[in-house]
Design a protein around this nucleic acid. Structure first.
Lengths: 269, 269
DNA sequence: GCCCCAAACAACGA
DNA sequence: CTCGTTGTTTGGGG
């Protein structure tokens, strides 16, 4: 549920709380998904301490001072819970206990959370904040027929953008979610890259400012179009809601459609 | 282009002309597709004679008296050409020369013809004329969500039915081409099996009667609905033409739609 | 809302 | 109109 901006700020705030903490115990609660055995997980983490916490795509990456890397994907309902002392959070997936008594628990009532220790990430898609016009053009070249909406949220193409921010970015770039990527003119591609950065970065800044310690949840009340409480965009155009590429999509008629084939004059079928 | 009824009659008529003929030469004209080398093809056929010619799905099968089996799929524009003496047909793919001087040539201007010598046909789909209600139910059980139109023409499900006869069969069975196979009630399944046999067999009989020596081409002028020259079905209902499962489909409102989900009363979305 | 998988569907070339 | 391959979409389950 949280997307790139939320997860970025979560990582920053977790960082302040757990960097340099030494792991003394790892409990795997036999729920959720783990790419290795629970014993291997413990063996890799216990005795080492966290050197960095950062966001990568939609995952949170814990770098350990012994070189191990632990990726946590919160999926739909996962949450980080920090407790000053031993306190068992509800719906626990994994608990890290630190030397000073603090614990970090990943919890998820649906147990969909995915945790990966040192995964092999061979040909990984670029993170959304690494996009530039040349890179985007290359990605479009590989998947020229995809709709803009489907393209932006496909983690095998770009990592980090979810359903909500895809709508925000497309609105900002004035590109219809039904546009076919391969039909975007040069200027629209440039505009899209600018929108990716400006929408995500200003959301990050706003979250930092208004929620300086947040490590869980999602803040969406400031979104311009993907926002059920709004009827019109900031520029006053009515917000439409449709299912596009199987996703609930918010958009307005300010967004230009670049269709697969030019519509022929007088065509009926 | 020819479908099951045409191909059945072609095989019967070819049979009369080539059974017991001994192959003395095989020429592969280096066009079209062959599942073995040209030398292996010659080696298998030269010196043996044809013992039977029959139709299998949309292919014509030549059984040799040495056990070899040669399948010819004419695809869109392939044709059999029989010549009393050496005479090179245009667009040749493969020529069999017989001991008595006759030749059988497979020709195709687009070179799409597919020829297979002793192919491994492991879990082959049943031929359309082998269908019975129990078998059809079993096939539906494997692909319950497919549309009737797509189902009937899928050669991995049933072999022999193409775009034109699928429409004829569905009209005869009074089943809409947009019906979902898994929703057909028992009676409709029975009716569909009956329609498969009656439509195909009466077309075969008509072709035998009116074109007693035909080995190429296609006769479609008697089709009831898949027939551009008709405006209404034999029972007087206007024929509609739409693209269904990417195929041009002819049907009428006599055909009952069995949809995926029941339409809710008053539903809007 | 998320990811994965499988099945269905569409587009292209031969 | 045909088949095979490939890429994209859709639906269900966790």
């Amino acid at each position: 549920m949280p997307e790139l901006p939320d997860l970025t700020v979560f990582a920053e705030n977790l960082s302040k709380q757990v960097v340099r903490e030494k792991v003394v115990k790892v409990v795997w609660h036999e729920r959720g998904r783990l790419n290795v055995g629970a014993d291997e997980l413990s063996g890799a983490l216990v005795g080492s301490s966290i050197s960095e916490v950062e966001r990568s795509g939609k995952e949170t990456l814990f770098k350990m001072n012994n070189g191990n890397r632990l990726f946590v994907h919160l999926m739909l309902q996962g949450k980080f819970v920090l407790a000053p002392r031993q306190k068992t959070a509800s719906f626990p997936i994994m608990t890290l206990a630190f030397e000073d008594g603090k614990t970090l628990t990943v919890q998820d009532p649906k147990a969909m959370v995915m945790i990966s220790l040192n995964p092999s990430r061979d040909h990984e898609a670029p993170d959304a904040l690494e996009l530039n016009p040349e890179l985007l053009k290359r990605l479009i070249g590989v998947k020229p027929r995809m709709l803009a909406k489907a393209f932006l949220i496909d983690q095998k193409i770009v990592r980090g953008i979810g359903n909500a921010y895809a709508d925000e970015i497309l609105w900002k770039a004035a590109i219809s979610p039904r546009s076919v990527m391969g039909r975007l003119p040069e200027e629209a591609i440039d505009e899209l890259v600018r929108a990716v950065h400006s929408v995500l970065n200003s959301a990050i800044e706003q979250l930092r400012r208004d929620h300086p310690a947040i490590i869980a949840g999602e803040i969406r009340d400031f979104l311009a179009v993907h926002n059920p409480s709004r009827k019109v965009s900031p520029t006053g155009h009515p917000i439409q809601v449709e299912t596009i590429s199987s996703k609930k999509t918010y958009f307005t008629d300010e967004q230009v459609l670049y269709p697969e084939k030019a519509v022929k004059h007088g065509a009926t079928e």
